[in-house]
Structure formats: structure tokens, C-alpha cells
Design a protein around this nucleic acid. Structure first.
Lengths: 113, 113
DNA sequence: CTATAATATATAGAACATCTATATATGTCA
DNA sequence: TGACATATATAGATGTTCTATATATTATAG
């Protein structure tokens, strides 16, 4: 099984990216991430919910409750302007970092194309 | 300034990669990583030295002391077979993870291995 | 119709990686 | 000779994610 420790820290960016597309509730984010990553990401509920609370405190998200057909109450989250700004920054960092790692992993081997 | 938290967990892989090319001592690894990444990675001594001890405990590295011209003693590290195996695994994980993140972010993979 | 699984959110405590701060010692350069 | 770079090391703090647990509702299998 794949060791998740390689990329800890990218969770916030991924959550913001999901919400940049459409409003979602927590449980849905876990499913979306799993599906869209072909089971590579299996974000745990115990990780997500506290993180959502923190992102709301930091004004990156706002939330509202909505009752589905049945009566099950879901807590939907929406990205704010601050959240979008943060997402852009994280995406830039991501580009720089992965480029640096890939350069290190692939570089220094003269003679290969 | 760039937030390092995006990629915590990749340090071990990078150390193993450096040592896969040539034996090195700790202080040298910090410099190499900084130079080869255009100052993107600034690994701290307080992070590196304990990590090297752990990797040696796990039989991924072996060490030997060597005195330079002057008399300054340096502790050189060498990667083991176990370490190379671990490096290969981490590189595979790295590919899978970055591909998954890039896919989620909107396609377009940055950099190549 | 009832037990179990899935849906949905939440928190406490543990684990782990990295950081800052600090300590020690030697070598180099102004 | 004082400051700075080299070189290694550890303690304690911080931050992120995990496991375990709790609660409540809805859907489904037996």
C-alpha cells in the first residue's frame, strides 16, 4: 500500500480546489478525492472535519446547512475570495516544489535524454 | 516565502537520491539540496542529523568517519541495498501521487522524471 | 421488521516530520 | 582575536495526519 507521508501538506490545497469547482459537504469531499484520484487519496474523516473548521476560522471557507430530500442534514462549504487567493498561492508553490524534486530525481545523470 | 509544508515527507527520498549518486556527509547534503533546487529546499541541520541516525538504524545507510586535509572530521554516509530499494519505492509513490494531484488540479503535469 | 452497513459530522489523543533553539568544537579570514 | 563558516548533535515546540471513539440518521439485507 502506498505511503501517504510523501505529500502531507497538500490536503488543504486539494480541498480548496474541489470547492473552487462547486460547493460540497465534508463526506462528499472524501468520496470525490478518492474517485478523482483512482483511490490514491483516502482522506480520513478525522483529518477532514477539524481541517474544515480551521479553514472556516481562517475565512477561506464559509458554511451553511442544507437538508436533503430525506431530512438528512448536510453541512455545505463554499470557498471565499481569501480561499481562492490561498489556492492560487498553493498551486504556485506546488509547481515550484514538484519541479525542484523532479529536477533532483532526474538530474545529474548525464547521457540520458 | 514558500511554505515547505506542501511536501513534508519527501526529505528521506531526496537524501537517498543524493547518496545514490555519491557518498556524502550531512553538511554537504544540505548544501547540495539547496544548490540543486535553486534555493527551494533549505533543509535544516536539526531536521537532517536525527533523520540520518534513523535511516542508519533502519539499515538504509551506513556511515564512516573521514578526516579532511585539515583535521576536520566528517561523517560520511553511504546508501545500502535496502536504501536503494526504498528509494525506488519512494520514487514510484512520488510519480503516482504527483500525477494524482496534477490530475485533480486540472491536468498538465509539471516537470518530468 | 430488525440487524447491519452506509451516510454524516465531530473530538481526543497518538504518531510522525520538521522546525527553532541551543550546544559544542574546529577552521578560516579580516 | 573576533566573527563567521564548517560540522555534528539533541531537546522541545509546532503542525499535519492518523486511529479510535462517539453520535445520529437512512438504506439495505436477511
Amino acid at each position: 500500500m502506498i505511503d501517504k507521508s510523501l505529500l502531507t501538506g497538500s490536503t488543504t490545497m486539494l480541498i480548496l480546489k474541489l470547492l473552487d469547482e462547486t460547493n460540497m459537504y465534508g463526506y462528499q469531499m472524501i468520496e470525490e478525492l478518492r474517485e478523482k484520484s483512482n483511490n490514491t487519496f483516502e482522506l480520513k474523516a478525522g483529518t477532514l472535519y477539524p481541517l474544515l473548521h480551521i479553514l472556516e476560522q481562517k475565512k477561506m471557507l464559509t458554511s451553511y446547512e442544507e437538508t436533503a430530500d430525506n431530512t438528512r442534514v448536510r453541512k455545505y462549504y463554499s470557498i471565499t475570495k481569501t480561499g481562492r487567493k490561498h489556492l492560487q498561492e498553493k498551486k504556485e508553490e506546488w509547481k515550484i516544489y514538484t519541479a525542484a524534486v523532479n529536477n533532483l530525481l532526474g538530474g545529474a545523470s548525464f547521457g540520458t535524454i
